[in-house]
């Protein structure tokens, strides 16, 4: 995730200190992603180098230095918010590769492999849902982050369910079952 742009977003509300940015970053992401104070200052230095933020001179030695966003920083922030992340090429997903590999390993039931992963994902979803049950009603940002994680995990479960059904049908229909080698070829082509 872009800590750089998240800091710009926080500074768009007004000038802030480094420690304040660290605390606000954590609360604005539902305290799901902890952020090291060192990373905050490194990021601020890079933003300042790129002309996207400016630091205010500390009034006295030992007091904290404040930062504010520049016009170039506001333009960069607006551009980032409205630019969709690159999702054109499928990620090389480890789980997908495990299921595809299981198809080729003699003596391995791909349905059992799918179930191992399905069980793990449901366990994780239970843990996220339990957090939501306890706290989410009182904390909007946390609820949004938990929802995002639940939908991400759910999409993987749906893929596993679909793969399970597709493989079952393929096993019962010889014409479809012959897709094994083709799946292999496609993988090679994509690499």
């Amino acid at each position: 995730m872009s800590v750089r742009h998240a800091i710009l977003a926080l500074l768009s509300e007004g000038p802030k200190y480094g420690l304040q940015l660290q605390k606000e970053f954590e609360s604005s992401t539902g305290e799901v992603w902890p952020l090291n104070i060192g990373q905050v200052y490194t990021t601020l230095q890079r933003l300042e180098r790129d002309g996207l933020v400016e630091s205010d001179e500390a009034e006295n030695e030992g007091t904290q230095k404040g930062f504010h966003i520049t016009d170039a920083g506001s333009t960069e922030l607006s551009s980032w918010l409205n630019t969709p992340p690159d999702m054109t090429s499928p990620p090389r997903d480890e789980l997908v590769i495990k299921v595809l590999s299981a198809l080729r390993v003699p003596g391995v039931s791909v349905h059992d492999v799918i179930q191992v992963h399905r069980r793990y994902l449901i366990e994780l979803m239970q843990q996220w849902t339990r957090l939501k049950e306890d706290e989410a009603d009182f904390d909007l940002t946390f609820a949004l982050v938990v929802d995002a994680e639940l939908f991400r995990l759910d999409s993987v479960v749906r893929w596993l369910d679909t793969a399970d059904g597709r493989l079952k049908r393929a096993a019962s229909e010889p014409s479809v079952a012959s897709t094994g080698p083709r799946l292999g070829r496609r993988l090679v082509v994509r690499r």
Partner: peptide, 22 residues
């Protein structure tokens, strides 16, 4: 899976058999 994640226990059925649980 969203619904199931609210449960204390999840039982997985396949072809009429309970094959796993969480």
């Amino acid at each position: 899976a969203h619904l199931a994640s609210w449960a204390d226990r999840v039982i997985f059925l396949r072809d009429g058999r309970a094959v796993d649980h969480v």
